[in-house]
Nucleic acid binder design. Structure first.
Length: 790
DNA sequence: TGTGAGTCAGTTTTT
DNA sequence: CTGACTCACA
């Protein structure tokens, strides 16, 4: 049970034996020590659970049962009668963490835990508070929460309004600056003059002010405001603050090392009531400095909350000895840390392996072979992860997996709600629900194309600004005048009337039907049905899913809130696939075997991180390495390549300095392939005969694939023995690919199947390159060796 | 209004 | 080498 306590952690048999909260409370008063939920905790964990009063900092190293402590602590507070579920404020960073915590509390103490109204992300709780007191900060309670793209659009408008050249001062940069200020809890008037002047010849501050003003007129907030406006609310209304201070008898914070200054201030204000604040975190896993997280918050905790109890969880239940030793040895090089030493009672296990490759392509190949040999030994693919520093590394690895037919999934990536069709559908709903939502209206006024282009929009804007009214209202007024061309006028009238009709139908129809109607009547669905590009079908699917998902919510407002805040798409779990993700995305997860490719100076540690943040940047990179290693239960396999393509150019690289920082006793250097023998390094070993890889399933499958496609194309480069070359094999590969003049076995109109993109139709042929319209993935250029006839 | 060439930059990412 | 974006042109 303890073994995989952190992430996996269905709380096993415990829930069955866990009493309901009332019984538990009664029992706990009689025999406080005997509560079943406390069983199986180690002494430190138990102390972290039972030290309920006063400030507590729990330094929970990777795999030490952090989530378990947090959830048990809540269960304990409730079971002992110290607090009712609604007395407890429990904040997390992600929705995923919040969901997981809810589920686990529910499992521990039964239905009583499900009613925890104040368990959620900082932003969700901030929203809840702001909606109650919206008018005190100049909003209406049905304010809209803007996503990043709306934010950007708004910034562009603000920049244009101030007659600033958007070329020289891009909206993105302004957005970055404003986000930074908001992360630090700074309202426009609080920005230090020096900083405000840095943007656009001293206009940064003015732009920030203007941006906030625009938000206010739109009755909208951005993510930063959800915290910042709480601060404003509380500072200006001490009675409101007091109310929340006394309401939250106990406060718990997850991942405290990730808090930014705004969140810190937010917490500190609330915690000044009962002062029962428990923060759980790990300074060694702070990897979000670049987006405002302040490691200092955790380093300074004892100073900020005098008399705080500091509890270290150092017993690791996840990884074997060598992995832990490697991770600990590495992180010990960091200076700015509170210091913990992870220990395990598990066996030493396998040493961490380090291997070099000639180039990144070979690295990908060796990695895939290694996975296949694990697979051949019945190692489940779902227990294997490949963690990369930057997503650009994924391409080559994916290519290799695709070629071998090795099932994988990418974690992270673009999310459901970020897709254009979902944002469009959302914009229709938003503009219907809130006629003042100019950004939404603007987004869809000409989607689908209905002849309401830039010129019309400008007119609307001018009118709206002059009258200080929303765009939709401006449109309604304008169509009564003769300022518009007849055609535009009638189109706009139709649109405006549609919106009125849809708005009325919200009262009478179930909201998912309203959505369906809007999508039909606006011509939006039709637009995609008519679209001949290959991904149109997928988009229609997404829209269906979108409408379907609305049914899970009681009303439109509830749904809109959900998409604004709880934006992660549910991912199908448990499939028998290798997981591929960035190191950042891996935090909180664990796998039996973890591959860590790309350990090269410049890539990892990343040069930019060092350039921008110097020593602190390097230390954050090192923490990232530590996070990567500690994801592994049994096996961690590092690798690097000595040649890598960076921005399209081949450059030679040297192994990451982190590799040399690993404790040698816990590391095995794996023999390098033939060509990798020059230069004296610790990786200089006898080359393994390359022929040994010919028997792997991957090799055989690659050959089979080649045969299936007629033995032509890129695949044929693999017919040359991969070993026995002194130079970059990549170049050979390219030469072979380019010199393939023989006509492809494929021709336009043929149906083909691609392992990654699925079925599709050939649209064009150029030598061994095919242009294929895939049914799901859209139009892609692929090499014919990657597809099969079908 | 839509396309095609040309330009330019190019970590990590949640809410 | 990509992909995102802009700008000129039809």
């Amino acid at each position: 049970m303890q073994k995989h306590s952190d992430a996996a952690a269905a709380p096993g048999p415990q829930p069955d034996s866990a009493p309901t909260s009332i019984a538990a409370r009664a029992m706990a008063t009689l025999r406080p020590g005997a509560s079943s939920y406390l069983e199986g905790l180690n002494p430190e964990q138990r102390r972290a659970v039972e030290t309920t009063d006063g400030p507590v900092l729990v330094l929970a190293g990777a795999g030490t049962g952090k989530t378990r402590v947090l959830t048990t602590r809540i269960a304990h507070l409730i079971a002992t009668g110290k607090a009712r579920p609604y007395d407890i404020l429990a904040v997390t960073f992600t929705n995923k963490a919040a969901r997981e915590m809810k589920a686990r509390i529910g499992a521990l103490i039964g239905p009583a835990g499900e009613g925890m109204p104040w368990l959620g992300t900082f932003h969700a709780i901030g929203t809840k508070i702001l909606r109650r007191h919206a008018e005190l900060v100049g909003l209406k309670s049905d304010f809209t929460i803007l996503g990043t793209d709306d934010q950007l659009r708004l910034m562009k408008q603000v920049i244009a309004d101030q007659n600033i050249d958007e070329k020289r001062w891009p909206a993105r940069a302004l957005g970055h600056a404003i986000d930074g200020w908001k992360n630090r809890g700074l309202a426009p008037e609080q920005v230090p003059p020096g900083e405000a002047g840095a943007f656009a010849f001293g206009k940064g501050g003015a732009l920030y002010t203007a941006y906030q003003a625009r938000l206010a007129t739109l009755n909208a907030v951005d993510f930063g405001d959800l915290l910042l406006l709480c601060l404003k609310l509380w500072r200006e209304n001490p009675d409101v603050l007091e109310n929340y201070q006394s309401r939250f008898r106990y406060i718990l914070v997850d991942e405290y090392q990730d808090t930014n200054v705004a969140q810190y201030l937010w917490l500190r204000l609330l915690a000044q009531g009962h002062r029962n604040v428990a923060c759980v975190g790990d300074d060694d896993q702070s990897i979000y400095g670049w987006r405002g997280a302040e490691v200092d918050n955790i380093l300074r905790f004892e100073h900020d909350f005098p008399g705080a109890a500091v509890i270290r969880l150092e017993r690791n239940y996840r990884s074997t000895g060598h992995i832990l030793a490697a991770a600990s040895g590495l992180i010990a090089r960091n200076e700015g840390r509170l210091g913990k030493t992870l220990r395990t009672e598990d066996e030493a296990g396998e040493r961490v392996t380090v291997s070099g490759a000639w180039d990144s392509e070979e690295e990908a190949r060796l990695l895939a072979e290694s996975i296949e040999s694990l697979q051949a030994r019945k190692h489940p693919l779902s227990e294997i992860a490949v963690l990369v520093r930057i997503s650009a590394q994924m391409r080559e690895i994916e290519d290799r997996f695709v070629q071998l037919g090795l099932p994988y999934r990418v974690i992270g990536g673009p999310r459901f709600y970020e897709r254009a069709e979902i944002r469009d559908a959302l914009a229709y709903l938003r503009a219907t629900a809130n006629p003042a939502d100019d950004l939404a209206f603007e987004r869809i006024i000409n989607t689908p194309k209905r002849g309401l282009g830039d010129a019309t929009l400008q007119q609307l804007h001018a009118h709206a600004r002059a009258e200080r009214i929303p765009l939709l209202l401006a449109a309604r007024r304008l169509i009564e005048t003769d300022e518009l061309k007849p055609r535009v006028r009638s189109t706009l009238r139709a649109l405006v009337e549609s919106f009125s009709r849809w708005a009325r139908s919200i009262e009478t129809m179930p909201h998912s039907e309203v959505a369906q109607t809007i999508l039909e009547e606006s011509g939006y669905t039709e637009m995609w049905q008519k679209d001949r590009s290959a991904d149109a079908a997928g988009r229609l699917e997404n829209l269906k899913e979108f409408v379907r998902s609305m049914e899970e919510f009681p009303d439109l407002a509830g749904f809109l809130e959900h998409v604004a805040l709880v934006m992660d798409a549910s991912e199908a779990e448990g499939a028998e696939r290798v997981s591929l993700m960035t190191l950042h995305a891996a935090k909180g997860l664990e796998f039996d075997t973890v591959f860590l490719p790309g350990w090269e100076d410049g890539l990892f540690p990343n040069q930019r991180a060092i350039d921008e943040s110097g020593r602190a940047g390097l230390e954050e990179e090192r923490r990232l390495a530590h996070v990567g290693l500690t994801r592994a239960r049994k096996r961690a396999k590092l690798s690097f390549a000595v040649n890598r393509r960076i921005h399209g150019l081949w450059s030679s690289t040297i192994p990451s300095r982190f590799i040399d920082e690993l404790p040698p006793a816990s590391v095995d250097v794996v023999e390098a392939p033939a060509h990798f023998s020059a230069g004296a390094s610790r990786f200089d070993r006898n080359p393994a005969p390359f022929g040994s890889s010919y028997g792997t399933p991957g090799w055989q499958r690659a050959q089979a694939n080649t045969a299936a496609s007629g033995g032509r194309g890129f695949g044929s480069s693999y017919n040359a023995p991969p070993g026995g070359r002194g130079g970059p094999r990549q170049i050979e590969g390219e030469l072979v690919a380019k010199s393939t003049g023989t006509p492809s076995a494929y021709s336009g109109g043929m149906r083909v199947f691609h392992t990654k993109f699925g079925p599709g139709t050939v649209a064009g042929v150029d030598g061994n390159k095919l242009t294929v319209d895939f049914d799901k993935a859209g139009r892609k250029m692929v090499l014919d060796s990657f597809v099969q006839q079908g």
